[in-house]
Amino acid sequence: MHFSLFLGQRVSSAEHDTRAIDLGIEQAVYADEHGFAAVYAGEQHFNDYEPYADGFMMASYLAGLLRTAYLGLSVVPLVIHHPLFFAERANLLDQLTKGRMIAGISAGRPREGGAWHKADLEPAERQRLFDAKLDVVERAWAHEPGDPPLEFDTGDEHGAMPGRLMPRSYRRGHPLFAIGTNTPAKVAEAGRRGRFVHFGPFALGPLTAIAETYRRGLAEGGADAAAIGRAMRWAIHTKMVLVADTDDEAWRLVEGAGLLPAPPWVRRRPGEETLSLQEIARRDPGPLAPAMGMPESLSAYLRRIAIVGSPETVAREVARYGDAGIPHMHVRFAFGSETDPAVCRRSLELFATEVMPRVGATPIPGPSPEEIRPEFRAEPALHP
């Protein structure tokens, strides 16, 4: 199995920004030293989630600190970015990491960015704009020095790229990228086009179903078994994880520290008002929501979003995903700024030293010589 660290911290106020950012950097370095496959930064604006805001800038800082882990972006809402600037920044990260980066991109969520004029786009228009911008990105990556100027009009930006895109990607062709989506039709389309995908938080049953949709799409697009295996290696799915010495201690920490506050669309059912989160997590969840933002029971939410317990319990639960053919888990260990950092540090330590060995965790190797542009193969690595 593979594990990625997700820097998905939330702060309760602006005074906690430094604390959250520093803890994320600390955990990123620890994860890199202990066999994690990747470290992912997100992108948020004008709220209290991921207070570093700019995933590209956070990742560029981490590029000088990490030695073996990939740098990931999860996810960049492409609709609010200029496609040529996105392509340049992705190429730069690809150079800084010597091909160990992957950019998750999406059409964003309603009201993404709040202040931008694209915030209230209808879903169909949002998807059209995403497709138009991704087309420009891919054409820019394919543009060679000496080619005619690359002309583009997304309906949001227009113009021409008169010279070359710089820097060039370190990888042959372009940096790794994935489509962030939980929609079965879009997952199938990504598979048919041979694109990687990033999933959000799912319970095992729905995740297994959408992963099978992705595999079928890959096969329909002509991918062989090896290509399907490479694609599934990057099909991350997200979990909040808290590991403690015992199950009871882990749930006590969750309950006492408020690590898993329920979002507004999640409700306790009648009779659950006096139950602990541990008790609720053991109940029949009822219908599982297909994605974030849709009504569901607290039990269903916990089953979809969280893995809590002792190293033995967490390893057993994590292994169920690997056994189901879904090998890459995207894990948050720091949740809110009110939480004692020692709790987050201990949880990550127990996961790295006691859970990962139990489930056979491995890193993901960097690009092979064949995957690197020929002109860069002889260049020494920044971090040998």
Rank of each mutant, 00 (worst) to 15 (best):
M1S: 12
L5A: 05
L7M: 13
G8C: 03
V11Y: 03
V11I: 15
H16K: 05
A20V: 08
L23G: 00
V29P: 03
Y30M: 11
E33Y: 00
H34I: 01
H34D: 13
E43N: 13
E43L: 05
A63R: 08
L65S: 10
R67K: 14
G72R: 03
V75D: 09
V76R: 01
L78I: 02
H81Q: 09
L84T: 01
F86P: 04
A87L: 03
A87D: 14
A87Y: 05
R89L: 12
N91D: 03
D94K: 02
T97I: 05
G104I: 11
I105W: 01
G108L: 08
W116N: 07
K118V: 13
E125D: 15
E125F: 02
R126M: 04
Q127F: 11
L129W: 00
F130V: 10
F130M: 03
A132P: 06
L134V: 15
E138T: 04
A142Y: 11
H143R: 15
H143T: 02
D147A: 10
P148M: 02
T154D: 09
H158K: 14
A160Y: 11
T181H: 06
V187G: 12
E189A: 12
G191H: 12
R193D: 14
R195C: 08
F196A: 10
F196W: 08
F196G: 03
H198M: 13
A203R: 14
A203G: 08
G205S: 09
G205V: 03
L207D: 13
A209F: 09
A209W: 03
Y214M: 13
R215M: 00
G217E: 04
A219F: 04
D224Y: 06
A225N: 04
G229P: 13
R230I: 02
M232K: 11
A235V: 05
V241H: 12
D245E: 15
D245N: 15
E249H: 00
G256M: 06
G256A: 07
P261V: 12
P263C: 12
P263K: 04
W265C: 04
R267N: 05
P270L: 07
E273A: 14
E279R: 12
R282A: 15
G286C: 01
E296V: 00
L298C: 05
A306W: 09
I307Y: 09
V308M: 10
P311S: 09
P311R: 07
R316C: 08
A319Y: 13
G325N: 06
I326G: 07
M329L: 10
R332Y: 04
F335D: 13
D340E: 14
R346P: 06
R346E: 15
S347C: 02
S347P: 08
S347F: 08
A361H: 05
A361E: 02
I364N: 10
P367I: 01
S368I: 00
S368P: 08
P369W: 02
E370M: 02
E370H: 01
E371S: 01
R373T: 02
